[in-house]
C-alpha cells in the first residue's frame, strides 16, 4: 500500500463502549476521485469521517492522510459537517464563512492578508456565489450554503474534502448545481468523499463507492457495485 495516497486506511476499528462503530475497515483512495460513502443510518459513515478528520480517536488500525497520521494533516483536509451540527444562531455573512478557511494563516490582531482575501474571492467565484458574498448565511438555500462550505474548504487550500450528508434536504436543482461544482473540483485534482444514506444521490455521480455497514461491504466502481447487487443489498439492509 503506497503511503502517498490521499487517504489510506488499514484495519480501522472504532468502538464506543461495547458498541463497535467501525470494524476492521480497510481501503485506499487515489487522488482526484469522487467517492460516495454509502450506508444506512448508523453504518459508521460519520464516525469514519470524524476519524479521517482527526476528531475521533480509534482503538486499532492505521489511518494516513497523504502518508501522515491524521493529527498532522496541516490543513490539507477539510470537513463539511451535517447542517444540524452548525450553529446557525451566529449571524455570519457568506464571505465571513469563506474566510474561515484562511484562519490558520491569519496573523494575530491583523486584518486578513491580501493573498487570503484573493483566495477567498477566487473560491467563492469558483462555486458561483461571489454575487452573494455580503448575504447572511441563513438567508441562503441549503444547496447554496453547502457551496459556501465548499468555497471555505478551497480557501483553506484543502485537496481532500469530506462532505457529510451534504445533499440531505437539498432540492433537485441545487443538488445538480452542487454536483457540477464537485465534478469541477474533482477534475482539478481534489479527492472528495461524499457520505449519504440515499443511494440515488450517489449512484450516477460518483467514480466509486465505499459501501459501509460498520465494516466495508463493498468498495469499487459504482456501476460494478450496482450490477453485483451490493448496493441493493446494502440499501435493503
Amino acid at each position: 500500500m503506497a503511503s502517498s495516497a490521499p487517504i489510506s486506511v488499514r484495519d480501522l476499528t472504532v468502538a464506543f463502549g461495547d458498541t463497535t462503530a467501525l470494524d476492521r475497515v480497510s481501503f485506499r483512495i487515489d487522488a482526484g476521485q469522487l467517492v460516495g460513502v454509502l450506508g444506512p443510518n448508523g453504518a459508521g459513515k460519520s464516525t469514519l469521517f470524524e476519524v479521517l478528520a482527526g476528531l475521533q480517536p480509534f482503538a486499532h488500525g492505521e489511518v494516513l492522510i497523504h502518508g501522515r497520521p491524521t493529527a498532522r494533516t496541516e490543513g490539507d483536509l477539510a470537513y463539511v459537517p451535517q447542517k444540524e451540527r452548525i450553529n446557525w444562531r451566529v449571524p455570519l455573512s457568506v464571505m465571513q464563512v469563506v474566510m474561515q478557511g484562511c484562519i490558520r494563516r491569519q496573523r494575530w490582531l491583523r486584518p486578513p492578508r491580501r493573498a487570503d482575501l484573493e483566495a477567498g474571492e477566487e473560491s467563492l467565484r469558483q462555486v458561483g456565489l461571489w454575487s452573494l458574498r455580503e448575504e447572511p448565511m441563513d438567508s441562503l438555500s441549503l444547496g447554496q450554503q453547502q457551496r459556501v462550505f465548499l468555497a471555505r474548504s478551497l480557501a483553506q487550500g484543502a485537496d481532500i474534502l469530506l462532505l457529510d450528508e451534504t445533499f440531505s434536504g437539498v432540492d433537485t436543482r441545487s443538488r445538480e448545481a452542487l454536483m457540477k461544482t464537485l465534478h469541477v473540483l474533482r477534475d482539478q485534482g481534489c479527492t472528495i468523499l461524499l457520505a449519504s444514506h440515499a443511494v440515488d444521490q450517489l449512484e450516477y455521480n460518483c467514480d466509486c463507492c465505499l459501501c459501509l455497514n460498520r465494516g466495508v461491504v463493498g468498495f469499487g466502481r459504482t456501476r460494478d457495485l450496482v450490477d453485483s447487487g451490493v448496493i441493493r443489498d446494502l440499501v435493503g439492509s
Binding site: L55, A78, P81, R85, I86, N87
Partner: peptide, 9 residues
Amino acid sequence: FDPLGAKVA
C-alpha cells in the same frame, strides 16, 4: 459557528 470544522481547520 462550526466547532467541528474549526477543529479540522
